[in-house]
Amino acid sequence: MRPQTARVVAVVALLACGIAGCAPARSSGPADRRGAAALTDAAVDLAVQAEPFRRQQSLLRWAEEELTHRCMVDRGFPQPYGPTAHGRDDTAWRPDLDARRIRGYGFTEAAPTADDQYPAGLPVTQRARYARALTGDRDHRASLRLSSGPEFTFSASGCLAEGRAGLYGDVMAAAKVSYVPQEAHNAIYGRIAQDPVMARALARWASCMKRRGHPYPSMEAARAAARHGPGGTDDARADRQFEVRTAVADAECALAADVPGAAESAGRRHAVGLTSEQRRDLNSATDLRAAALVRARELEEEQR
């Protein structure tokens, strides 16, 4: 996992994930000739990030942050944390329109919050103890290697680890829930982008954008233009307004053109192309997510 930071919310966001649901697993097809199980329907949903992916992902993230917060309070550090940040699950093909209206594409960093400022406000003598409470012993770490090769190392002690273990069962399960579905999604992403269904949806998106005064040939071009501003001005406020207008138009046109539906439809066709190891690991990660969602909902009920 990426290096730990002082901010609990930012760190635990790395394990923010969607849940595919708790229904009994059903196979989406027969096993391949090497004997590997086919993907369950829930695993396919997770690979293509089918809704309610975003809502479930937000719930899991909140639950992990809550458990981490409780652990830190027990250790004498009542660090505040607020609602999950807007836009964390905003993607090009599945835009979060509410987030776009607030933060555009997110090129400008948000102002520091109370939880950002908490560690720096501690007495110098307590900061090392705070860091150790949060991230644990540097020599007590675990690692996960994906079937495609990448290896991730992460804390196995401290409140971050305890929060993850409290939700997912242990830190290894938490890591699998974080990285395995993303590995699967990355594996089919290029095929989705080249799929004829997706190409037609993106053509509708481009036509919509042109009608709205944003004649960009691609989503990447729209983002690049928004990053550089309208040109001819050094006005940061005007640049920011241009970014938000472009980002909102992009999102609204993506939804009007049903880009999310096209991505999901294409993704379901291409998910069968995952390797046997990826299918096995994704099925397992899907079950771990489903169990964690049950625990997250129980935690949510406790808070009411």
Rank of each mutant, 00 (worst) to 15 (best):
I19Q: 01
I19N: 12
G21S: 13
G21Y: 04
A23I: 00
A23F: 11
A25I: 00
R26S: 07
R26H: 03
S27M: 07
S28M: 02
S28W: 09
S28I: 06
G29L: 03
G29M: 03
P30L: 00
P30Y: 10
P30V: 13
A31V: 08
A31T: 03
D32H: 00
D32S: 12
R33P: 01
R33N: 04
R34W: 14
G35Y: 12
G35M: 06
A36H: 11
A36Y: 15
A36D: 12
A36N: 12
A37S: 14
A37T: 01
A38C: 07
A38T: 02
L39H: 02
L39V: 05
T40N: 09
A42E: 12
A43Q: 04
V44S: 08
V44D: 11
D45G: 09
A47W: 04
A47L: 14
Q49V: 08
Q49P: 00
P52N: 08
P52Q: 13
R55Y: 01
R55F: 07
S58P: 00
S58F: 02
L60W: 01
R61K: 09
W62Y: 14
E64K: 02
E64M: 14
L67Y: 04
H69D: 06
H69S: 13
H69P: 01
R70I: 03
R70E: 05
C71K: 06
C71L: 07
M72H: 09
M72S: 10
V73I: 14
R75Y: 06
G76C: 02
F77A: 05
P78K: 12
P78M: 13
P78E: 08
P78L: 05
P80S: 11
G82F: 06
G82S: 13
P83I: 00
P83A: 15
T84N: 05
T84S: 15
A85I: 04
A85F: 04
H86R: 10
H86S: 06
H86Y: 14
G87F: 07
R88P: 00
D89G: 15
D90L: 03
T91F: 07
A92R: 13
P95Q: 09
D96T: 13
D98Q: 11
D98I: 07
D98G: 08
A99L: 02
A99S: 09
R100K: 11
R100S: 06
I102P: 01
R103C: 00
G104Y: 12
Y105N: 01
F107L: 05
F107R: 12
E109K: 13
E109H: 07
E109M: 04
